[in-house]
Amino acid sequence: MSTNTKRQAGAREALAVPDGETVPVEAPTSSDAPVRRRRRRVPEITYSVLVFIGLLVVWQVVVEMFDVSNILVPAPSAVAVSLVDGFRDGSLVSHSIVTMKEILIGFGIAVGSALVSAVLITQFRTVERVLFPLLILTQTIPKVAMAPLLIVWFGIGISSKVLTVALIAFFPLLINAVLGFRSAAHEQVEMLRSFGASRMQVMRHLQIPSALPHIFAGLEVAVILSVTGAVVAEFVGSSEGLGYLIQASNFTLDVARTFAVIVVLSAVGIALHAVVVQLGKWLVFWTATPTNAASEV
């Protein structure tokens, strides 16, 4: 971490000197600091992309040089071909849609039930006393271990997958939401009450907005877990979906296809995560400013 920032600082300084001289248009109009800031951002992303491409090239070269078996590790080019094929014949798309559906419905159920539970737990003492210890206890069960049972109970259709996803996403959401609803400062509650706010109004004007940052922290974790949950449930028993596709292609030793599905799965995960993060930035705008400022330092 510290060596990383040092290296970046060094690179920044090395960049700053030639910049001032080779870009005469910018130098006189803008001050030094903004120029540096703008310059600094571009390389960070480009470096990541370059490193990524570099790794792919090394991978390709190693596979070709040492003639690695396609069944062990396929070359990136083979994965790319398999990806294109999968999209051409529509198989990747149709299976993605199935898995997405499982993820979204399961995630939705988890979000809804976790938020309702969190409100009940934080608003009613008795609910908290009875329910919370039980929930904490059941949290220690590894949720993926429940997947086979759910298949037995609900069949190999979509409902067992949806429930696995919901189960796996529920707890991080619940814990964060409970923390969030409790995060409002006591003094703030007193302030609102001093203006005559009812309990519902304290909830609406204070506790819900204060909970949002925590809820979004939970959503970010839960959305990634949802993808895992759907794939695991499909592994256990299914006739369609990306998890099914991985097992099927593994069975036929089509490892390039397995890799292609993994790429699609990561893309799905990244996209869902990005949606959650973006939504969070938009809804929790008041904490976004300091975080942005910090990342610029």
């Binding site: 400062a185 003094e187 703030q188 302030m191 609102l192 203006f195 005559g196 706010a197 109004q201 004007h205 204070l206 907005p209 705008f285 008041w286 904490t287």
Partner: peptide, 18 residues
């Protein structure tokens, strides 16, 4: 004890809003 998600004007209007 201002509410960080309310603008200055809306913070002033806390009581009327309630």
């Amino acid at each position: 004890l201002l509410l960080p998600w309310r603008t200055v004007r809306k913070n002033l209007l806390t009581s009327p809003d309630l």
